[in-house]
Amino acid sequence: METFAAVFDVIYQLFDNIGFLILAASGLVIIFGMMGVINMAHGELMMIGAYITAFSYHAGIPAPIAIIFAGIGAGLVGMILERLVIRHFYKQLLSSLVVTWGLSLLLSQGFLIIFGPSILNVPTPFGNFPIGEQTFGIYRLVLFAVAIAMVASVWAIFTYTKFGTRARATMEDPDMANALGVNTGNIYALTFGLGCAMGGIAGGMFALTATISPFFGINYTPLAFITVVTGGSANAISGLISSALSLAGIQTGINNLVNVYIGYVAMIGAAFVILLILPKGISEYIERRKIRVRKVTNK
C-alpha cells in the first residue's frame, strides 16, 4: 500500500503537470504552430476566458457552462482581433510579436481600468479522494482529462471536417487554396478564433484554481511558447503531446528527486537541449521516423 501510494503520487503529479502544459499551450499550438503568428496576447485571451467564467459563475450559471461561455467569448474576441489587426501580419513572424505585445498591453490594462485590480475567483469543485495516508484533488484530474479532450477535438476537427481540410490547405498554400475556391480570409479568421476559444476555455478552467486579475495570463504565455516550440510544427498535435510529455516528465522526476526549483530549471533546460538536438522540434523527428518506417515496410 505504501509503495502504491508513492507511485500513485508521482503519476498524479505527472498527469497534473502534463495537463497544465497542454491546456496552457493548446490554443497556441493552432495559432503559432499552424498559422505562424507569435501571439503574445494569448495569455490575455486566457484572462478574458477567466473573467467571463467568473462573472458568469457569480451570476448563477453553473461552472461548466460558464467555461463554455468563456470559450465562445474569447473566440469571438479573437476573430475580431484577427480581422482588425492580425490578418496584416501573416508571414511576418516578428512584426506579429510586436503588434500582439501591443494588444496584450491594451487588453490587460483595459481590464485593469474597467474592472479594477482583481475579482473573486470560482471555488474548485469535486473534492478529493484518499490513497493511503494522502488525499488528492479530483479537479486536477479533470484538468488533465479536459486537456486531452481538447487536443483530441483539435485533431478531429482538422482531420475529419470539411473546415479542417480547408484550413490545412489554406495554411499549406493560401493562393492555391484560394484558387480552388476556399474563402481563405474566413478560414484564417475561424482558425484564429478557434485557437483563441481554446485559450479561453483553458483560462476558464484555470479560473477555478487561480486568483483572477488583469495580469492573470502574462505568466502562461512564455511557458506555452516553450512547449509549442519544443513540439515543433511538423505535426502540431503529436508535437504538443510529445513535448508536454517530455517536459512534464522531466519536471516531475526532478521535483521528486531533488526539489521544485531544480525541477523547474531542469524543465526549461530540457527545452533548450531538445531544441539544440532537434532544431525543428520533437514532432519533426517523429514524422521523419514515420516516413522511414513507411519506406522500410514498403520495401
Binding site: 484518499p130 486536477r140 484554481t209
Partner: peptide, 12 residues
C-alpha cells in the same frame, strides 16, 4: 498562491 485552492482541493 494557487497553493491554497490546490491544498484545499486535495483535502489538506
Amino acid at each position: 498562491v494557487q497553493f491554497y485552492p490546490q491544498a484545499q482541493a486535495a483535502g489538506m
